[in-house]
């Protein structure tokens, strides 16, 4: 049985510490979700901060940590949808800078980096809904049912979007990938 997590009324340093702990626990996950949706770090940070604001103001209890996590993901995705950009404001950034390759295995690291870069570029080209399900399935390792719950879609729709997303990736990526 999951632990019940209640957001106490703001009072004292203990609560502040607890809040900061929750922020530290979830911020990376939410930032990555938002960044992959919005393709812009400032907007992604804005969304994540706003999500935590809503979290702090929320008075309802979570049934469990899983419930809390699902709530965070759902609210973040909703926030990203509302901030979805048109081509007019596509001031997307390049992919994140990476550390310099070490001298050892330089060629291998460069090839690996290029592969990851190409993959992320193709992920960003996917329609937003496919990006969402691909990320939640492959990175957050959520089930189709769980993805359906946080995105508000039927499991069959999620499966269909996963399939179509994979098909588009297969078509565009030169590398052959195994997609289980």
């Amino acid at each position: 049985m999951g632990q019940s997590i209640k957001i106490e009324i703001w009072d004292g340093d203990m609560t502040k510490e607890y809040m900061q702990e929750r922020i530290d626990l979830y911020s990376d996950m939410l930032y990555k979700i938002a960044y992959l949706q919005l393709k812009n770090s400032e907007d992604a940070k804005d969304i994540v901060q706003e999500v935590f604001y809503q979290y702090i103001k929320r008075q309802e209890e979570f049934d469990s940590e899983e419930h809390e996590k699902a709530w965070f993901i759902k609210v973040t995705l909703n926030g990203c949808r509302k901030l979805w950009r048109s081509a007019w404001f596509r001031h997307t950034e390049g992919l994140p800078k990476q550390e310099e390759a070490s001298e050892n295995n330089l060629e291998k690291e460069i090839l690996e980096r290029e592969k990851k870069k190409r993959l992320l570029e193709e992920i960003w080209r996917l329609p937003r809904k496919y990006r969402e399900v691909i990320h939640l399935f492959y990175f957050e390792e959520m089930s189709v049912k769980e993805i359906g719950e946080v995105t508000g879609r039927n499991p069959s729709t999620v499966t269909s979007q996963l399939t179509r997303g994979r098909e588009l990736l297969k078509k565009r990526l030169k590398e052959e990938y195994r997609y289980e």
């Binding site: 990376d28 940070k45 990476q98 990851k116 492959y138």
Partner: peptide
């Protein structure tokens, strides 16, 4: 590959 690629995205610190 996807997990490795996404992990390379910067981590952020959000202050309360």
């Amino acid at each position: 590959t996807y997990q490795n690629a996404v992990s390379d995205i910067e981590n952020v610190h959000i202050d309360l």
